[in-house]
């Protein structure tokens, strides 16, 4: 790793001030992507601002028929949260499938969301459940937040503080994991929210997306069979040694049907 300055402020204000001071500074949350990247010398921030000491950013609460998860809440804590398990079991299931136990013990929802890796699980969770990303200065609907591969609506000096998940009527997440990394080759969140049905896909394309044709079909008939004939266009899908674009396109339908079946 290259040399860098390090500070671990204990308040959001101090973290924001430090971030404004240096254009080449980077926030580190769980560090599960940033630190390996820095070890490979593929990133060399001048300074790391560690927000692990800001206690107010972690924790799960219920507010106005929504589950509010602090940005620094670890994946393991989301998976183990009785509140999440009770109100949105599909979200607890999703958190439990991320990486391995040690990654889940460090990695955070805010870090995952800000990174917007095309194969991360949370983007499908947020878009599928119609969540809202809360930052130090505003609220951003998940539909508007994830803009492109590794790109989000966040400003350079903006910090995510929490994610609001409206409690859905029912929801389930199904994923076909890479057997080594557990990243989603394809992951699908299907939810019946109070504002309608949502189907969100991660892993398949450069960025999370919704399948409106499936949403419309499920509105009329909420069964796996109703979406069986709906194919997605895989022309611009991701490809690697594990799965071709065509295979990923096929998996979207399979995982969506499994999610619908799991929602029941």
């Amino acid at each position: 790793m290259y040399q860098f300055d390090y500070q671990a402020p204990d308040s959001l204000e101090a973290a924001l001030a430090a971030l404004r001071e240096n254009d080449e500074a980077k926030i580190v949350a769980g560090g599960m992507t940033l630190l390996p990247t820095m070890k490979l010398r593929l990133a060399r921030p001048e300074a790391l601002i560690d927000i692990n000491r800001i206690g107010s950013l972690a924790g799960v609460t219920e507010k106005n028929r929504a589950i509010v998860i602090g940005a620094m809440t670890r994946h393991a804590d989301v998976a183990a949260s009785k509140l999440v398990r009770d109100r949105i079991p599909g979200l607890a299931d999703l958190a439990e499938t991320i990486g391995d136990p040690q990654v889940r013990n460090r990695g955070t929802i805010g870090g995952s969301v800000a990174n917007n890796d095309p194969a991360a699980d949370y983007p499908a969770g947020l878009v599928g459940l119609g969540a809202t990303v809360v930052t130090d200065r505003r609220e951003i609907a998940a539909d508007d937040f994830f803009t492109d591969m590794f790109e989000t609506a966040l400003e350079a000096d903006e910090i995510i503080t929490a994610v609001h998940f409206p409690i859905p009527k029912r929801a389930a997440y199904m994923k076909f994991p890479n057997p080594a990394s557990r990243y989603a080759i394809v992951g699908v969140m299907v939810a019946e929210t109070h504002d309608g049905i949502r189907v969100a896909v991660t892993g398949a394309a450069p960025c999370v997306f919704r399948v409106t044709a499936m949403e419309d079909a499920l509105k009329k008939d909420f069964t796996p069979d109703a979406i069986a004939p709906i194919a997605v266009d895989g022309a611009e899908f991701n490809e690697d040694i594990h799965a071709s674009a065509e295979y990923r396109a096929h998996l979207v339908n399979v995982m969506a049907r499994r999610a619908v079946a799991a929602v029941g």
Binding site: P36, M149, N238, D240, I241, H242, A245
Partner: peptide
């Protein structure tokens, strides 16, 4: 670490 991202990044 990056093989899964190569096609999308190249495009």
């Amino acid at each position: 670490v990056g093989s899964r991202l190569i096609v999308a990044t190249t495009r």
